[in-house]
């Protein structure tokens, strides 16, 4: 069969659900039954509108929540229910998350070097003090900060610098899987380029795998091997980057693609993007099932929708 199917996925997610009970008669179904695989050394981009469940997916995978239902297999270990202590330790060292809201997860009373060293200390991943300092300084420089920054507190940084502290903290442990939640969205384009290039270098060197959550499709296109499109807690389409950009099938994916802004003032000031309204289109996500277009390209649809949507594509 194909190469991808011959390989074991690093992360296997099956019918994952994460619901939040707000009160007696109201539950938010933030993630409502999604399945996907991520293979070692690849970058999987997760995109979708605000509130579609991207961060919740990331937080459920790294087990900040107990999933409502579904299965998560990480490097052959089942981490979806009560974990064995050794599986939990494996998860804590080999999966790291870069959080969307950097200030909310950086302790304001700790110096930057303490924040970055913390993970290394907890998991005893250094030889001596000199080695620890060396590791901290190296990663700081790699994310475009300097040694002088190590003794400052998080609130004494600019927004983009703070985001890079979060990136450094996650990458310093050399994890197998990094969940990057809007990790570069507060960075200016030049630093974005620097950080993305750094992530790619690590990938080439160490085979790091990324789940890259973002709303910026131009960056997602650039960095991802495959892309999953989320909407209202469902994974509506998934495929290789080429398939998603060249042959989008789901109307929601199409509307997302049509809205990518261009750095050209005259074009931007006069453009109108496609709008997508699930109710108006009459799409019911719970009624749809995964329809396979190629070995890698898949769309959530009912049979009738599938027939209709593929008409004006090259399938």
């Amino acid at each position: 069969m194909t190469q991808t199917e011959a390989r074991e996925p690093l992360l296997h997610v099956e019918n994952l659900k994460q619901h939040f009970r707000i009160n007696r008669n109201y539950t938010t179904k933030a993630v409502d039954g999604i399945s996907f695989d991520i293979y070692p050394g690849e970058t999987y981009g997760l995109v979708g509108e605000s509130g579609s469940g991207k961060s919740t997916t990331g937080r459920a995978l790294i087990r900040l929540y107990t999933p409502t239902a579904g299965k998560i297999i990480f490097d052959g270990r089942d981490i979806s229910g009560n974990m064995k202590p050794e599986d939990e330790e494996y998860l804590r060292t080999n999966m790291q998350m870069i959080f969307q809201d950097p200030m909310a997860c950086l302790n304001p009373r700790k110096k930057v070097k303490e924040i970055i060293a913390q993970g290394l200390e907890i998991h005893h991943m250094y030889k001596d003090q000199a080695d620890l300092d060396e590791k901290v300084n190296t990663i700081l420089e790699k994310v475009g900060l300097s040694r002088e920054h190590a003794t400052r507190y998080p609130q004494q940084f600019s927004g983009g610098q703070r985001q890079r502290i979060g990136i450094a903290r996650a990458l310093v442990l050399n994890p197998k899987l990094v969940i990057a939640d809007e990790a570069i969205s507060a960075l200016d384009v030049s630093i974005q380029a620097q950080v993305v290039n750094l992530m790619k270098d690590l990938q080439d060197e160490l085979g790091t795998t990324y789940l890259f959550i973002a709303h910026d499709l131009s960056m997602v296109k650039y960095i991802s091997d495959r892309i999953g499109v989320m909407h209202l807690g469902h994974l509506v389409e998934t495929g290789t980057t080429d398939e998603i950009f060249k042959n989008p099938v789901h109307p929601y994916t199409k509307s997302l693609l049509s809205a990518i802004p261009k750095p050209n003032p005259r074009v931007e000031k006069s453009r109108i993007a496609l709008t997508y309204d699930k109710k108006k289109e009459g799409v019911d996500y719970t009624a749809g099932t995964a329809h396979q277009l190629t070995e890698t390209h898949q769309v959530l649809a009912t049979d009738e929708e599938f027939e209709r949507w593929i008409k004006d594509t090259s399938y």
Binding site: G48, E49, E182, H215, S255, A259, P261, T275, Y276
Partner: peptide
Amino acid sequence: TTALDVTIQA
């Protein structure tokens, strides 16, 4: 609008 998708950003 850094964390907003393009449609909501617009």
